[in-house]
Design a protein around this nucleic acid. Structure first.
Length: 419
RNA sequence: GUGGGUGUAGCUCAGUUGGCUAGAGCACCAGAUUGUGGCUCUGGGGGCCGUGGGUUCAAGUCCCAUCAUCCACCCCA
């Protein structure tokens, strides 16, 4: 039986990897412009970190984690997201005692045991930023601006930014009570899933896509109406700052994020036309997280982008100028007795940063030319009896077919003239 | 986790109501007067027809299972 990549995983081959490098480069550049620095955390953590950080009742923790025991019977889990690890690192290194805010970006694979689908994999990749130690609404706006700037630089102008505030624990609890009061009389009309949501996390009933559920709870109180003064002011300020920065958004009463740690600002970015998994990014404020993870009461905010989904979105734009690096020069031997010499010429070229190649499969001179052509070489260096006798090399310009014989010392300068 | 579609060469796919050595295009390799490319022509390699069972004289073609993949639900990035 042939061994294949595990379900929900895949290989990124040469041409695609250049696409990835391009996207990662854009994201890192933008993050650094905004003052974020890279953090690299382990791919696995103690299971408890995610149980506490992400939330015991979340889908991620209850059914999507890759949890295993190591040889010392520690329960470890492949990270399903990046924020909890950042909070852990912040606490572990006592960075909350230093210069605030701490601003990080990260990128890498995440793991969730979910049913694969377009834009959804078991090993998928996120790019995210986190900012710890400030509750300023301007920072909320900044985080969103980073996200928007990345999308714009990737050419993805057709995004939709959904925005909401889920409030602080106090006003959310208050809201929760009001919502339950409102739903209880009509709870029998809800779908099966919502019956369950109703008891576990009633806020989640709001973003049910089922029409009948929406109808049943019509006229429900909104989070916004139940925000305390402080949370409402915060949210208003975030909105104002975004407007002043020229960022369009949609206030979405039904936007409720699935992870327990979110407070106040919550947002999601959707790009239409890439399938059911249209959320390319999302995030929000998580003022309780650091404390929940055993640290001081320090606020934080961040977002994560799904790289696979960004790729989908970019592909729908038909952008195709991503290719593996071309070879510039191919060294061709007219007889295999000159192969040793060809290696020396290659060494010389490569030391001068010229992307160069030779044939390693015993091709005829003619086939070597074809090979050079396929690799996209712009110059070919020919070595045959004539060259060896004259102590020189022949350079062929593949575009205009001009050939000249040059001294060894002049090889690099002549090639660079053509490239 | 639920429902539905698909699974034939590296890639995109054909394969009639089950019937002889399974095809095409592209890709790959080699030739087309002996030291030279992109076009064209000729030839060639490569498929236990996803895997395992079953029905049948006979299965890529029918049935079951399994795995994978796709679409939607769900969830989220």
């Amino acid at each position: 039986m042939q061994i294949k990549a595990p379900r929900g995983t895949y290989d990124i081959l040469a041409d695609d990897s250049y696409k990835w490098q391009y996207i990662e480069k854009v994201m890192k550049e933008v993050a650094e412009i905004f003052g974020y620095n890279e953090i690299r955390t382990p791919l696995f953590e103690h299971t408890e970190l995610f149980e506490r950080g992400v939330g015991e009742s979340t889908d991620i923790v209850t059914k999507e984690m890759y949890t295993f025991h190591d040889k010392a019977e520690r329960s470890l889990t492949l990270r399903p997201e990046g924020t909890a690890s950042c909070a852990r690192a912040l606490i572990e290194h006592s960075l909350y005692n230093g210069v605030l805010p701490v601003k990080w970006y990260y990128t890498g694979p995440m793991f969730r045991y979910d049913r694969p689908q377009t834009g959804r994999y078991r090993q998928f990749h996120q790019f995210g930023i986190e900012a710890f130690g400030s509750n300023s609404p301007h920072l909320d706006a900044e985080v969103i601006l980073v996200l928007v700037e990345i999308l714009l630089r990737l050419g993805l102008k057709n995004y939709e930014l959904h925005l909401n505030s889920v409030g602080c624990p106090e006003c959310r609890e208050n809201y929760r009570r009001h919502l339950i009061e409102h739903i209880t009389p009509v709870k029998d009309k809800l779908c099966e899933d919502c019956q369950l949501r109703y008891t576990q996390n009633p806020l989640r009933v709001l973003d049910c896509k089922n029409e009948s559920c929406h109808k049943a709870i019509e006229g429900y109180p909104t989070l916004y109406d139940n925000l305390c003064d402080e949370c409402r002011n915060h949210y208003t300020k975030v909105q104002e700052t975004l407007k002043d920065s020229g960022v369009a958004f949609i206030h979405d009463d039904n936007l409720v994020r699935g992870l327990d740690y979110y407070t106040n600002t919550a947002f999601e970015i959707h790009i239409p036309g890439i399938g059911a998994q249209s959320a390319v990014g999302g995030g929000g404020r998580y003022n309780g997280l650091v404390k929940d993870c055993g640290g001081p009461d320090l606020p934080g905010i961040g977002f994560a982008l799904g790289i696979e989904r960004l790729l989908l979105a970019i592909d729908t734009l038909g952008k195709k100028d991503f290719k593996a690096a071309n070879i510039d020069v191919v060294v061709i031997t007219m007889s295999d007795k000159y192969e040793d010499l060809a290696i020396q010429v290659l060494n010389h070229l490569r030391r001068h940063n010229i992307r160069s190649e030779k044939d390693y499969t015993g091709r005829s001179p003619r086939a070597q030319m074809k090979y050079a052509n396929k690799l996209g070489a712009r110059v070919v260096v020919l070595i045959g009896d004539e060259e060896v006798e004259n102590g020189c090399l022949t350079i062929r310009n593949m575009q205009n077919k001009e050939q000249i014989q040059v001294e060894n010392q002049e090889l690099i300068s002549n090639i660079n003239n053509i490239l």
